[in-house]
């Protein structure tokens, strides 16, 4: 791994992935000794091309890996210093790790309000109402559509709802998987603005998994780049963004140069 200057906050990190290796079936290694840290209230991006192992990493962290016939072959996943490897996904969510899965997974037949209520179901009744109000403050659009069936909303609104639902549980860290997938650039830009607000409003740490490196680097403090199951680059966002390697493969420098040459 090529480490660029600086490491995340020194005290116990919120989420820590230590030398994690994961395999599917008997042989196929999907992750090899991956290290990753999300500090308290930090925004960390996990970048990489398709098939680099991002999905595997997020599945492992969120406890879904067993459902996909994968197994942890080494290392550990710590949430506030406690191991969460091997716990069921719903348990991990209840321990404070919110999930915004890929593909805008909302409850289509439930109303917006009900979606948020399910998201906040792990909170005591008294704090739930307060929390929902805070979510509505952040996403006024959801408040307008309170009683609408989620399935009838636009893609961008559904993504917003998925975010809101995860936030309703007052998570300390939010796992956000491929937010930009299948959404128009304008909408993606708007939702990324909301992500910034999430940290300001709630102090929630974010782990953003994203194929679109430029977008993610725009809001994170720290970034990791995954390639073929290994972290090949890690460092503060601006250093990663400036690195040669990043330009080569993700930020389109090669294409620009080719265009200039041709």
């Amino acid at each position: 791994m090529m480490a660029l200057n600086g490491t995340p906050a020194a005290d116990t990190p919120l989420l820590e992935v230590r030398t994690l290796s994961v395999a599917y079936g008997r042989k196929a290694v999907a992750l090899n000794a991956v290290n990753l840290t999300v500090p308290k209230a930090g925004v960390v991006a996990l970048l990489g091309a398709n098939g680099a192992g991002k999905t595997t990493l997020i599945r492992t962290v969120s406890g879904l890996i067993r459902l996909h016939n994968g197994a942890i072959t080494g290392g550990e996943v710590l949430l506030e210093g406690k191991s969460i490897a091997g716990l069921s996904a719903d348990r991990i969510v209840r321990l404070g790790m919110g999930q915004v899965p890929e593909g805008r997974l909302v409850f289509k037949n439930l109303t917006v309000e009900e979606n948020l209520q399910v998201g906040g179901a792990i909170l005591p009744r008294a704090t739930l109402a307060e929390r929902l109000d805070a979510v509505y403050d952040l996403f006024p659009r959801l408040a307008e559509r309170k009683d609408q069936a989620a399935g009838l909303m636009s893609g961008g609104e559904q993504q917003m709802l998925a975010l809101g639902r995860a936030l309703a549980a007052s998570p300390r860290v939010l796992l956000i998987d491929e937010l930009s997938l299948g959404l128009a650039p304008l909408i993606v830009g708007a939702i990324y603005q909301q992500l910034k607000k999430i940290r300001e409003h709630f102090g929630t740490a974010l782990l953003i998994v994203e194929q679109n490196a430029r977008l993610a680097l725009g809001i994170c403090d720290y970034a990791y780049v995954l390639e073929r199951g290994e972290i090949v680059l890690a460092g503060p966002a601006e250093l990663v963004a400036a690195s040669e390697r990043m330009h080569e493969s993700y930020l389109g420098a090669r294409a620009e140069r080719q265009a200039a040459a041709g």
Binding site: S62, L64, S88, A89, D90, R91, V93, R94, Q99, P101, L105, V106, F107, V118, G119, A121, I122, R165, A166, A169
Partner: peptide, 9 residues
């Protein structure tokens, strides 16, 4: 899946 990821057992 959405239920599991919302912390529902």
């Amino acid at each position: 899946e959405a239920a599991i990821l919302s912390g529902v057992n």
